[in-house]
Amino acid sequence: MSFKDANGHCHSNKCHVTESKYLARFVATQGPIIPPPERVLSFGSLRGDTVTDTTPVMTPVPFSVAGPLSKVTVSPTGNELVVSESGVYQVTLSINAIAFAAPDPGQNYLTASITVNGAPIFTQGLAVFNITSRNSSTFVVQAALNAGDSVGASATSDDPIFGYLNRSLTILQLN
């Protein structure tokens, strides 16, 4: 039996001189230590799981649980996230519509919108989305926000028995 040590030296009379050319040697070295980023970006979330009825006018979506939060606070109403610094943010609203025992394409739908300072995030109406009965939907937008802006959600339906539950609102600063 023969073997070569880490330096390629033969420890038997059966080693050949040419074998040392074909031995792979790996040397592990420690890579550079990268310091953590100096700046922590903002993030926050709100969620709720109670059944909430809708009205024919856009009404703020209530939330019951806040957090986690970093450099984002919750508004006094508890239904909006307030950003502490200006930047580009990603805002996500997820909401489940409930009304009927089974989905029916002929039935009304829930209309929801992400809001900034109480108004739709985009004024052209592009921030409004519809959810049919017993379905859920997630809406994601990126927008430039200013320090102090309050981000929330509103919902409405023409159908008096329409409601929603299991909703969440998250915000993440991208830069």
Rank of each mutant, 00 (worst) to 15 (best):
M1E: 08
S2G: 14
S2V: 06
F3I: 02
D5P: 04
A6M: 09
S12C: 06
S12A: 06
K14W: 02
K14F: 11
H16R: 15
V17N: 12
T18A: 11
E19Y: 15
K21G: 02
Y22F: 15
L23K: 15
L23R: 15
A24F: 15
R25A: 12
F26W: 14
F26N: 06
V27K: 14
V27W: 14
V27I: 15
A28I: 07
Q30M: 13
Q30K: 14
Q30N: 04
Q30S: 08
Q30Y: 06
Q30W: 08
G31K: 01
G31Y: 09
I33T: 13
I33V: 15
P35A: 14
P35S: 11
P36H: 03
P36E: 07
P37R: 04
P37Y: 06
P37D: 03
V40P: 01
V40G: 07
L41P: 10
L41Q: 03
F43C: 05
F43G: 10
G44Q: 05
T50V: 00
T54A: 08
P56W: 04
P56E: 02
V57K: 13
V57S: 11
V57T: 10
M58Y: 12
P60K: 08
P62N: 00
F63I: 03
S64Q: 11
S70I: 02
K71T: 07
T73I: 05
T73Q: 03
V74I: 01
V74K: 03
S75T: 07
T77R: 12
T77K: 11
E80W: 06
L81C: 00
V82W: 01
E85P: 05
S86C: 01
S86Y: 12
V88M: 13
Y89W: 09
Y89Q: 05
Q90W: 04
T92I: 14
T92M: 14
N96D: 00
N96S: 01
I98Q: 10
A99G: 12
A99M: 08
F100G: 04
F100S: 06
A101N: 06
P103L: 00
G106S: 11
N108I: 05
N108Y: 12
Y109P: 04
L110W: 00
T111N: 13
A112H: 03
S113Q: 12
I114Y: 08
I114S: 11
N117G: 02
N117S: 06
G118L: 09
G118M: 02
A119V: 11
A119C: 03
F122K: 13
T123R: 11
T123Y: 01
G125M: 04
A127E: 01
V128G: 03
V128H: 15
N130Y: 09
I131L: 01
S133P: 05
R134T: 10
R134S: 09
N135A: 10
S136T: 04
F139L: 15
Q142L: 10
Q142A: 10
A144F: 12
A147L: 00
A147R: 09
D149P: 12
D149K: 03
S150R: 13
A155P: 00
A155H: 07
S157G: 00
S157P: 07
D159A: 06
P160C: 07
I161Y: 10
I161Q: 05
L165S: 07
N166M: 08
N166D: 01
T170C: 09
T170S: 15
L172N: 15
Q173S: 02
L174R: 11
L174V: 03
L174M: 14
